[in-house]
Nucleic acid binder design. Structure first.
Length: 856
RNA sequence: GCCCAAGUGGCGGAAUGGUAGACGCAGGGGAUUCAAAAUCCCCCGGUAGCAAUACCGUGCGAGUUCGAGUCUCGCCUUGGGCACCA
């Protein structure tokens, strides 16, 4: 009997699938379709275990759906634009294009041995001109529909490298290469009008029944709908052109607790003051230092500067308030101006304490507890509090009620109006970088901003400059400094003009690739007939880190594509079901050098807690996301060499629930391999002894009952992403099969079923068993086994008996015995009689088929 | 700082509000073997006990319930996201 040899088996069956062309997706009207998509990878150069996990999960779904009679679309492509390619070119020369396509070739070669059921004929990379040219065509359509516009926005500016920095290139407020203090600068940039869809993107979340609740919640919070009051404070002796400051507040009920007005350093009023006052200018410049992330702004020390200006309180003309420029107010939110209520906002409290401003309570706890405030009092809006300075409404009311009353009151007195606001900002898509999709517009001195003509698309990225490959070691945007690329005739008047040199955010590329996969080589962005058939994505799988941006942008794009005629109405929510999988983690092995700094070691360099080479003991740091810098990485390629793809697939599915992180361990991988070997051995024995004598009939019956239960549980597990539980069930069934005294026919049937249930997870292995057991055709084409309902229920069941909620015994009863009968048997148990001691039970609970509880 | 999630044996984890710890790993004992590898069998949350068994036990503290790992509230710890990383 031969042993399980993954290398032989896997190559053989991949070839067989290829030749049979079973993963090639073609439209078959009438057959139910199923579109399964995993988030496509960035071509970093090597696949990692996270990819193995992600694509294996998708493959399980795809193969299961194939077996249940669906026409499956399971494509793969590359999210190929982005900064790493440019960084690589800067660091070690070469060209982003060569780097990227080289990486794609390597990764494709590494991915294919995994045996994924992918239709490779649909593969594309977002950096293919064929793809980004269609993206440009769509951009022009979006422009025509008014879905795109230009405005000023703030970027991270490195004053030494003279370049715009990405957030990740800002470390502690300094540029990653130059180390210079980063400044915030304004540039004119392109925006998608995603905020026009705020309400729709929010309310449509309710219909996404097969999305994780937490993703929907995160998106809802991100969109951030709020109801509030917008009104103006009158300025007393303001500079020319300014007679008021428009503010937005979600807490108008606290207006009588206002003690200052704050404006952003980028507020028009601040800019006017700055022009005439060097101190203000210095303070504003200070506010503009540091990164642009929300986190950086929130964590920065809260600072303000008194402008000397005063505003009048709208409810009391005698009352005036100071106006501060403050570094924590964002021009992008609301109106770029706020009023501060120190008694009921911690940030305002800190600010008021620092600048010795009054702290005026508006409400106090309804418990009457009114000591002096040492911190802001911020109860939930749903809590009833006692208003001591109410604008409107009762003295005792909830914040919610008070807010509504305050809005009504102010509107009635002509002070501003109630408005619904969204936190969601428009999507800035301009990037001052080379390796992205060029924005297809032209700047003409006569005509202004003019869209490029569609027949001139794609606007391709230049490969050379002045006959030489582009030099990426020079700071700045290569498109901007290119001697000829930007020169072009104006599409409107024909005079010499200049191309836009900004490229698109890579999130644009990934916002519609799912639609392109339905017709990857169409000469328009999509082919409506194909999109109509294949959309929507039935199951989308990817990392939780994309919960907000990528998924929100994709939802916006689907809507915009419908408006521009590139997708059918039904694709408004493009992903019917979403699954977010966890990461693959590994322990970190660390020693220290002579100066006490950590030195990391690869897992293969360590054995038994010691370095193989020197015997030095390593410190083991608990599992963390695999990362090159910590060296806690396991290379899928070497795992496949060692054990085969099926072992790797089996392990990443078996060890943890898919939505959680899985820790890669050598012992676990070893165990997975041993298990496959064991199943192979068991199946071989069964195949060799097929004519064995018939066994006792109840042994056959018991095995087949167990088989049907396993079919039921595994099917349920696969459908609900309970892969680890499904695999546990398969382990248990393997144990049953190994010990079974059933006859050859029953065992063969059970073993074939086992192979089928394993097929989505370990497809090559399952094909081999199938052929060993003389199954018909390819297991990949075999219909999924169906559990016989009658075999799932046992005639006799065991009921636990509790006394006061604690298990004290059990009884065996027929499945459908009636309640009274069960009660009688339960009460006659020794333990129960002893506990009752002659008395009647206080209460007797019988949950049919589940439990008996006696309360004494 | 803000938003979100997760915490169960030595470890990964299982458990429609109904027998906590399925299944796997590690560990211990045994069989087989000249020996080893491989394989097979048994044990395996803690405390007490020869045992039957009893008590404790799902991050911590309260609560709802006949019954809570599961529901509610408050805390602690860890992880993810925060708009130019993908």
């Amino acid at each position: 009997m031969s042993r399980y040899s993954a290398a032989e088996i896997e190559a053989k069956w991949q070839k067989a699938w290829d030749e049979a062309g079973i993963f090639r997706a073609t439209r078959e009207p009438g057959k139910p379709k199923y579109y399964v998509l995993e988030m496509f990878p960035y071509p970093s150069g090597r696949i990692h275990m996270g990819h193995v996990r992600n694509y294996t999960m998708g493959d399980v779904v795809a193969r299961y759906k194939l077996a249940t009679g669906h026409n499956v679309l399971h494509p793969m492509g590359w999210d190929a634009f982005g900064m790493p390619a440019e960084n690589a070119a800067m660091a070690s020369g070469g060209h982003p294009k060569d780097w990227t396509y080289g990486n794609i070739a390597v990764m494709r070669d590494q991915m294919k041995p995994l045996g994924l059921s992918i239709d490779w004929s649909r593969e594309f990379a977002t950096c293919d001109p064929e793809y980004y040219g269609q993206q440009q065509a769509m951009f022009l359509d979006f422009m025509e529909k008014g879905l795109v516009y230009r405005k000023n926005a703030i970027v991270n500016w490195d004053p030494v490298d003279m370049t715009v920095l990405a957030n990740e290139q800002v470390e502690d407020g300094k540029g990653w290469r130059s180390g210079a203090e980063v400044e915030r600068r304004e540039l004119t940039q392109w925006f998608f009008r995603i905020s026009d869809f705020s309400e729709d993107l929010l309310t449509a979340l309710d219909g996404l029944d097969n999305w994780p609740a937490k993703v929907k919640l995160m998106q809802a919070n991100w969109i951030g709908r709020s109801r509030g009051l917008q009104f103006a404070f009158d300025l007393i002796d303001g500079p020319g052109g300014f007679d008021g400051i428009e503010v937005y507040t979600t807490r108008p009920d606290t207006l009588l607790g206002a003690s200052f007005v704050g404006i952003s350093a980028d507020h028009p009023l601040a800019k006017t003051l700055e022009a005439n006052n060097p101190d203000v200018a210095a303070f504003c410049a200070d506010c503009r230092r540091g990164g642009t992330t929300e986190e950086a702004l929130e964590k920065a020390e809260k600072k303000g500067m008194d402008t000397g200006l005063r505003v009048r309180h709208p409810l009391d003309p005698e009352w005036d308030l100071p106006v501060y420029i403050a570094n924590f107010i964002l021009m992008d939110y609301g109106t770029g101006a706020i009023f501060g209520v120190p008694a009921h906002d911690q940030r305002d409290f800190d600010f008021a304490t620092r600048y010795k401003l009054p702290i005026i309570p508006v409400f106090t706890p309804s418990t009457g507890d009114t000591g002096p405030l040492t911190e802001a009092y911020v109860p939930p809006k749903t809590e009833t509090v006692h208003y001591v300075r109410a604008i409107a409404g009762d003295d005792a009311q909830t914040g919610e009620a008070a807010i509504n009353a305050a809005i009504d009151h102010c509107e009635g007195r002509g002070i501003g109006k109630g408005v619904t606001q969204y936190r969601l900002r428009d999507w800035g898509l301009s990037r001052q970088r080379y390796w992205g999709c060029p924005i297809p517009v032209v700047h003409c001195s006569d005509c202004g901003v003019v869209p490029e003509r569609k027949e001139n698309l794609p606007v391709e990225l230049p490969y050379d400059e002045a006959g030489q490959p582009i030099d990426f070691s020079i700071p700045g945007n290569p498109l901007d400094r290119h001697p000829t690329w930007a020169q072009c005739p104006c599409p409107a008047c024909g005079k010499p003009a200049r191309r836009e040199t900004d490229t698109m955010d890579t999130f644009v590329d990934s916002s519609w690739y799912y639609a392109r996969f339905t017709a990857p080589h169409a000469e328009t962005p999509t082919d409506m007939a194909e999109a109509e058939y294949w959309m929507n994505v039935d199951q989308y799988i990817g990392g939780i880190e994309h919960a907000i941006l990528h998924l929100l942008y994709s939802r916006f794009f689907a809507r915009a594509m419908i408006e521009t005629g590139h997708l059918p109405q039904k694709a408004r929510e493009p992903f019917d079901a979403l699954f977010t999988q966890g990461m693959v983690t590994h322990e970190i092995y660390q020693t220290r050098d002579e100066r006490g700094r950590p030195v990391y070691h690869l897992p293969e360099e360590v054995e038994g807690g010691k370095l193989k080479e020197t015997g030095e003991a390593v410190e083991v740091i608990p599992s963390a996301k695999m990362s090159k810098s910590k060296k806690n990485v396991v290379d899928p390629v070497s795992i496949i060499d060692q054990y085969g793809a099926d072992t790797a697939r089996w392990f990443v599915l078996s060890d943890s629930p898919p939505e959680r992180d899985v820790e890669w361990t050598a012992a676990g991988a070893d165990a997975a391999f041993k298990h496959l070997s064991r199943v192979y051995r068991i199946a071989s024995e069964i195949a060799a002894a097929r004519t064995a004598e018939a066994a006792a009939p109840d042994a056959d019956e018991a095995l087949l009952r167990e088989m049907h239960k396993t079919i039921h549980d595994v099917t349920g597990g696969v459908e609900s992403f309970g892969f680890n539980a499904a695999i546990a069930r398969l382990y248990a069934f393997t144990n049953t099969l190994a010990k079974s005294q059933a006859g050859g026919a029953a065992k063969t049937r059970a073993a074939r079923t086992l192979a089928q249930l394993m097929a989505p997870m370990t497809p090559h292995f399952a094909e081999e068993l199938w052929s060993l057991l003389q199954g018909e055709g390819l297991i990949a084409n075999a219909p999924w086994p169906v559990a016989d309902e009658a075999m799932l229920v046992d005639e006799t069941i065991t009921l636990p008996v509790q006394i006061n909620g604690k298990r004290r015994g059990e009884i065996k009863v027929p499945r459908d015995m009636d309640k009274a009968e069960v009660e009688k048997i339960a009460l006659s148990l020794d333990a129960v009689e002893k506990a009752l001691n002659g008395a009647a039970p206080k209460k007797l609970i019988v949950v049919p088929g589940r439990i008996v509880n006696v309360v004494v």
